[in-house]
Design a protein around this nucleic acid. Structure first.
Lengths: 210, 210
DNA sequence: TAAGAAATTGTTAGCGCGTACAATTTTTTG
DNA sequence: CAAAAAATTGTACGCGCTAACAATTTCTTA
């Protein structure tokens, strides 16, 4: 019976998404510091005032944009995880998905570093950061819990996550660091941390639990 | 014969150092974003105008402050390196020196992350970043060149540096990450990347070249 | 100790920013 | 098609910041 608010909501949703995507494009170019209300709106082809009509304030847009940006990056992991048949492939899905060739560049890296910096004094960003880490640990756990105890998974995740973050951090200022190298360094790390025996175990097809 | 500019230079040097140290204290508390001219001067117990009297501008103070901050951190490495007798001890000096118990806390970590973020759009910061990395690689090289070719050292340094940066980055928002754990994770990484044989070699006393 | 130099202060101009809001245009609806 | 509602624009205010600079105090030196 509610046909009235139909179009209203539709436009609202469209504009919100447009603004978030515009903010995302600016973010990938210039990081959080480059993100002014004026630039977001002009990137979206709208006028400045529109922002506070569809969002509480600028922070609201940025928060949604970061979630969106992470979703875009992590889609790669999700797709690869779905195709994985063995636990080793699951681990490789996580590794390769964290360094998509197309995204692993200096601008994107610096954008994320600026997010990390902002998270130091922004409670909501901080929560997102923790959420992202929990997701990673959970993915790792599902790939490794057949060979590692929960405690071992935690420790492995610590080093693994540090390596991912470090490789992204360094990407921002090392022109000669490719996605392939990052993947290779992280793979090597995982192989050495787990040892040959465990890697062999992980390579065996997963016993299906139907 | 130059007795006239004696006191002048003395005061100039003192004030410059005082301002740099004051900026450093603010930096460790609140990162680069918290660093306004007003805050630096009030931390130093001086009035705002003094800053441009002794420095070209604020950026100049910040640049010198970052060099100072790095020197403070790296002093630990230098001291440990001097005491090292074997190449393995040299490697451990680098590892332990990069995570001094007293400095490895969330505020300091976040301060450095804010520096990394700023380096994305600040050419001089970027040069400092590269300089810091070259120093690390050079230290690593002097510890490992007896067992690794230059190319291997480079590759090792890539992963090693990523791990250091990642462990600092993560320290900013993981309350439960201690210096001991960081050192242990990095040591483990080095041991596994080098293998038992090389570690054994590194443990033998260095042949003195007198 | 007086004059000149050096050091220090406090104020102010100017800029970029977020956002509130009145004014305007477009869309919806009876 | 007119009146009301929704969407969009442009402007303007206030804030925090850097840097410039005139005014003032403190030190030097002859």
């Amino acid at each position: 019976m509610e046909s009235a608010p139909k179009t209203k909501t539709r436009i609202e949703d469209i504009r919100r998404v447009e603004l978030i995507e515009a903010a995302h494009r600016v973010f990938l170019k210039s990081g959080l510091n480059g993100l002014t209300t004026t630039r977001i709106c002009q990137e979206a082809g709208m006028s400045q005032g529109i922002l506070t009509y569809y969002f509480k304030n600028k922070d609201e847009v940025l928060f949604e944009m970061v979630r969106y940006a992470n979703r875009v990056l992590m889609d790669d992991v999700v797709v690869r995880l779905r195709q994985a048949k063995t636990n080793w492939q699951r681990l490789m899905a996580i590794i390769e998905g964290n360094f998509p060739e197309a995204s692993y560049n200096a601008n994107t890296a610096n954008a994320w570093v600026s997010f990390y910096a902002a998270a130091a004094s922004n409670a909501r960003y901080n929560m997102l950061q923790r959420l992202f880490y929990r997701r990673l640990r959970s993915n790792l756990s599902s790939a490794l819990n057949s060979v590692l105890t929960p405690n071992r998974v935690d420790r492995f995740a610590q080093g693994f996550a540090a390596m991912i973050d470090g490789l992204w951090l360094r990407r921002g200022h090392s022109e000669d660091l490719t996605a392939a190298e990052a993947i290779s360094l992280l793979t090597e790390y995982a192989e050495q941390a787990l040892g040959v025996d465990m890697v062999d175990k992980l390579r065996k097809p997963t016993a299906e639990l139907l």
